[in-house]
Amino acid sequence: MSETTSSPRLSDRMENARRGLTALIAEAGVARARRDEVAAVKDQRAGDGGTAVCAWNHFENIPTFYNWNNRPR
């Protein structure tokens, strides 16, 4: 049986979870900054290799196997 016919709509359920999601998203933002992922992007552009960390604002070209859509495994 398909799991994609659930109701109410997914977007409505996400909207109903707004408060909790917003808190979680904010925590993720703080964690990202602590991981210096923004700095890692700058390092990579400066040519020193940066870290293994995927660039948060570089989704469509995330290195290695961290591309989300039609990614290889």
Partner: peptide
């Protein structure tokens, strides 16, 4: 302890943030 960039969670929260901002259609390439 969110020290690790956890791919699945990062992607899910990225999508959730876009849904809440009304920009969800910009998430996909």
């Amino acid at each position: 302890d969110p020290r690790i960039h956890l791919r699945e969670i990062e992607w899910t929260l990225r999508y959730a943030e876009a849904v809440l901002d009304g920009t969800a259609d910009r998430v996909l390439p």
